[in-house]
Amino acid sequence: MPPLSLSNQVLSPDMMVAEVLETWPDLLPVFLYRRMACPGCSMAPFMTLHEAAQSHGLDSDVLMEELREALDGKLPSGPFLPPLSHGQP
């Protein structure tokens, strides 16, 4: 489990995706489940959770809810499909 109580960070939609994954590595399955290409992406340090959700056509509130649930230990399980295309206008 991520050291939730020890972290003084609070999960927010304005956090950069890479920072989120560094702080709470256990959140990885949420991104895989949502077929987001963020994990390992060069752009992850520069994109907020909100932007990443948007570009995948996902309501950022929904993503935040799932991330918070995952922090509570409710993780989605695989098998996960490959990432979807994103950023289409």
Partner: peptide, 14 residues
């Protein structure tokens, strides 16, 4: 940025 990643990774169509 996301569209450039989609090109680089040749991500499947949504």
């Amino acid at each position: 940025p996301h569209r450039l990643v989609a090109i680089a990774e040749d991500l499947p169509a949504p």
